[in-house]
């Protein structure tokens, strides 16, 4: 029961703490694209891949008391911090989720900043296009972020490194 909820709880557990809704969205999207079995549906929005389903599921987990959400004022806006509660840990111990190597991948992503993860997720969203076309998409759709070609290269290298980690499965 609630298998998809349990997978998200596992993601937060192995990450320790996730700072920011945007970061959480991008981490789950990237994990899904590199083959972890998350089932939330993502669509391209103004700021890149976004899943309303994921947002709702996180809200449900907070309401259930399985996830802890702390709202913090940061400059002119709010930021949210997510951790798993003790009740959440207990639930997870009774509903184990098998996702080997998830911890390695998510810890790595958690060390990156949200801006870079936005780029990585955008590159993955257009993975049916050539690198040249993807770069063009990044420069037009994400013009306000002012990504450089070097950063796009870095995103590609990062995706390959993540995929290598999952191949060990």
């Amino acid at each position: 029961m609630l298998k998809d909820h349990a997978k998200l709880m596992q993601a937060v557990l192995v990450s320790g703490e996730i700072l920011g809704r945007k970061k959480l969205q991008k981490m789950i999207y990237i994990a899904k694209k590199v083959s972890f079995p998350f089932h939330e549906r993502f669509q391209f929005h103004f700021y890149g891949p976004y899943s309303e389903e994921l947002t709702l599921r996180v809200e449900e987990l907070c309401n259930m008391g399985f996830l802890n959400e702390i709202k913090e004022k940061k400059g002119g806006y709010f930021q949210y911090r997510y951790t798993l509660t003790d009740t959440g840990k207990e639930f997870l111990s009774l509903n184990e989720v098998e996702m080997p190597f998830l911890q390695d991948c998510l810890e790595d992503m958690n060390d990156q900043n949200a801006r870079f993860l936005e780029l990585v997720s955008t590159v993955l969203y257009f993975d049916n296009l050539s690198k040249e076309e993807v770069t063009d998409k990044v420069f037009t759709l994400k013009s306000s972020q002012r990504y450089t070609e070097a950063e796009v290269d870095e995103a590609y290298a990062y995706i390959e490194a993540l995929k290598e980690k999952t191949k060990l499965q």
């Binding site: 609630l2 998809d4 909820h5 920011g20 809704r21 945007k22 969205q25 549906r41 929005h45 103004f46 700021y47 976004y50 899943s51 309303e52 389903e53 947002t55 709702l56 599921r57 809200e59 449900e60 806006y77 709010f78 930021q79 949210y80």
Partner: peptide, 20 residues
């Protein structure tokens, strides 16, 4: 059956640039 099984876009202020 959970409400997230039928995702519906409530209005979201986009505090962290999730949605415009």
């Amino acid at each position: 059956d959970s409400s997230s099984d039928l995702p519906y876009d409530f209005y979201r202020p986009g505090e962290e640039e999730e949605r415009l």
